[in-house]
Design a protein around this nucleic acid. Sequence first.
DNA 1: CGGGTGGTTGATAATTCTCAATTGTTGTGG
DNA 2: CCACAACAATTGAGAATTATCAACCACCCG
Lengths: 230, 230
Amino acid sequence: MSTENTARTTTRLPAGHSARVPSVTGSAVFAGCPELIGTPFSYAREEEIYGEGEEAEFVYKVVEGAVRTHKVLSDGRRQITGFHLPGDLFGFGQGETHRQTAEALADTHVLIFRRRQIERAASGSAAVACQLWTMATNDLRHAQDLTLLLGRRSATERVASFLMEVDERLGATGTFTLPMTRRDIADYLGLTIETVSRTLSQLEEEGALLRAGGRQVSLRRARLRRVVED
Amino acid sequence: MSTENTARTTTRLPAGHSARVPSVTGSAVFAGCPELIGTPFSYAREEEIYGEGEEAEFVYKVVEGAVRTHKVLSDGRRQITGFHLPGDLFGFGQGETHRQTAEALADTHVLIFRRRQIERAASGSAAVACQLWTMATNDLRHAQDLTLLLGRRSATERVASFLMEVDERLGATGTFTLPMTRRDIADYLGLTIETVSRTLSQLEEEGALLRAGGRQVSLRRARLRRVVED
DNA sequence: CGGGTGGTTGATAATTCTCAATTGTTGTGG
DNA sequence: CCACAACAATTGAGAATTATCAACCACCCG
């Protein structure tokens, strides 16, 4: 099995972050499709990767860093639909144009693939197409969970649920540094930054978590779970 | 529940009755896959088609009527994630279990397909798999639009946007009868029935629509569009 | 007719937002 | 290493939006 290793030839690896680098492999799109090799590429913190409405030329896989995708209304209101961490693929809803904007949360390394190439691979291989179907389905599941969160949960439940989600995706250690600002969290949870901040303070006061320096949190998972209770 | 009083036992349908039904066409799953023939089936108004957590044995295509899919929290809060009208496929997120509940809004005829059969067809035909990918992507797009609606739009915008969505899916005539109750609308838009009702009254007052008998509406689309403005 | 469901409206409460001030954090140049 | 600017996060007070509780109305269907 060609466990892609060469991928991060892209110079610096800020080994500062946790010693994880989990299954960046996965490489779902490529299973049984070795001719689909991604090209390494990098984006700086806060750099736009693609914009809503632009032609969808590439599909991306996060290698290192983090990306957010969002939609905006004309008056500036923003809704983040997802955060993409190492191993995640994004930008692959097959239409001619992107329906969201993607931006790097931090300095980020990705592998890029030509959309047409992937579509060609899909139409030639049921296995590849099924993997794309599976990935789209996973995204759909996530979007529907978010829908329930936004439509029917209180601010406290949203924040608690968010913290647990991030924890799981970052290794489920219960202690981590949030890779996004309060604004990003607010725009993901359909709240304001003030409400997010107050809710975090309240959760800390209730003993559901501990904080250090704004971004670092340590979850008391049992208590948080009780807050979410579903 | 107590509403379950009318001939619910007749879920089994004399085959052939609804086999012809009009231009339901679309039939995306079947294009180039003639061996995938659905079996006609019927559900009475308010009848459950499948429940969250159940094994996903079938996939459904609406022929006549309307279906809603939703998620519920343990305390009863409900979020409807979609309404399915004639031509729509639902229940096809390929996992072993359904992640939502599906219920008939009205007396409904569907075609059912065995999930395994569809998955087999997909893994044998890139064309079929691509169609499933496309359908999942369309659902994903819808879910993300709903996410923006729930996370960042006011009650007025939600209701106006909803009316335009229903209008389009019902033929874009501007005049139609809502196929769902206020409760369903509220649970789709993340509001209460009272807020939905008040918002409709307010929109009528502003001349953005006309109403007759609760469910019938006639949209002044230009004005509604101005309310939504994006 | 009468009961039941569905829909509307009003008064009040709760949640979340907005505006404003303050504190904390981080990176930079002296 | 410190001072400082720029940005990020917190906190408070009051306002706005939406929810809740309650009453009432209008059908529809037997």
